[in-house]
Design a binder for these strands. Structure first.
Length: 334
DNA sequence: TAATTATGACGAC
DNA sequence: TCGTCCTAATTAC
């Protein structure tokens, strides 16, 4: 269940490893066979990420639109040029396992020891990558060097260059679009801090929120209001703003709305760079290291129902809002 | 082996 | 508001 940061990371991997190369496409699962046939043999020419959606262009004005939805994920394998703007090289991107570890961080193995930590961000490097599932699970450790990689599970779309493969599974949307259709899709989306002009985007977001009677907790999840925020970032942004999720948009003070926008922009940048939805960034180095190590320690309120608020000790409340689980502190958030 | 869970979004009432 | 779609890991039985 990727939120916006994952999609931007994935787009950067495609930019680094696919754009400018001829791609062979197939649909091992069969459900995107026709689309894959159209893509097959074309050169990838551009990639864009907006909110939770990625658009990959091929020559001939052909665009692939992918929305990962709840379960979608990309698995990269083979030789992977690591985008220097993201801190950890991945096999799988977009999905997390049930213990809450971002597979972004957990699943990549590189033959060259140390290559997977990518503590330093520098020039692009080349790694021989393969996917590893968590230790208990059947993994690809024994055949991780096979080329092409064996198909595991329901692969909707496989995109391959001579040296890299990317498997898409579980997307909520995977379709071909014309340039006009891409424009129309993007036009329906709210601003994305990594796409739109910062000042313009802040104005647009603020104006829309301040006009609506809808609870702010719903507005933040509305992709036509702001792009890329999902259930984790929603809960965390509202906590960081010390704001009651039920507050109608029009009753949120303008400065608070602007602060939420700027906070989202900040968290998104951190998320793209680290691959983790770190929302407790204002910590001392030791606490920060601990928070990055386990998702149990990474959030203020998300997934903490019944646990004491980290600040005031009040039990974190769990309720449904927008058919999703909303976590918040009724004491801190007014 | 079945049930549960998940970071989404859509369409039908 | 509800049902539906997409997938796989983990937990419960």
């Amino acid at each position: 269940m990727p939120e916006g940061h994952s999609v931007h990371r994935i787009a950067r991997q495609f930019d680094r490893n696919y754009v400018g190369r001829v791609v062979s496409a197939s649909s091992p699962q069969g459900r995107f066979a026709e689309g894959a046939a159209v893509i097959d043999g074309r050169e990838a020419v551009e990639v864009r990420a907006v909110g939770k959606q990625m658009f990959l262009a091929f020559d001939g004005d052909l665009w692939l639109r992918v929305h990962l939805g709840m379960y979608g994920a990309w698995d990269f394998a083979g030789e992977i040029l690591v985008d220097p703007t993201i801190a950890s090289a991945n096999g799988r991107m977009g999905q997390t396992n049930q213990r809450g570890t971002d597979l972004d961080e957990a699943s990549a193995v590189f033959d060259d020891a140390g290559e997977n930590s990518l503590a330093s961000i520098g020039a692009p490097r080349r790694a021989r990558g393969r996917v590893r599932m968590s230790e208990q699970t059947r993994g690809l450790d024994d055949d991780g060097d096979e080329w092409p990689p064996p198909v595991v599970g329901q692969v909707r779309l496989r995109l391959m260059t001579d040296v890299t493969s990317a498997d898409l599974r579980g997307p909520t949307a995977c379709e071909l679009q014309t340039p006009d259709e891409v424009r129309a899709t993007i036009a329906k989306l709210g601003p994305d801090p990594l796409v739109d002009d910062p000042d313009e985007a802040e104005e647009r977001f603020t104006a829309v929120v301040r006009r609506k009677p809808t609870p702010i907790g719903l507005l933040l999840m509305d992709q036509s209001v702001v792009s890329g925020i999902g259930n984790v970032y929603r809960a965390e942004l509202l906590y960081r703003a010390l704001l009651d999720p039920h507050t109608p948009g029009k009753l949120v003070p303008e400065e608070v709305v602007r602060a939420i926008w700027r906070d989202w922009a900040r968290l998104l940048v951190i998320g793209v760079e680290t691959g983790q939805m770190m929302t407790m960034d204002d910590l001392d180095p030791e606490a920060y290291r601990r928070a990055m190590a386990s998702r149990d320690d990474r959030h203020w309120v998300y997934h903490r129902a019944g646990l004491p608020c980290r600040v005031c000790g009040t039990e974190i409340v769990l309720e449904e809002m927008g058919a999703r689980k909303l976590y918040w502190c009724p004491s801190c958030q007014k």
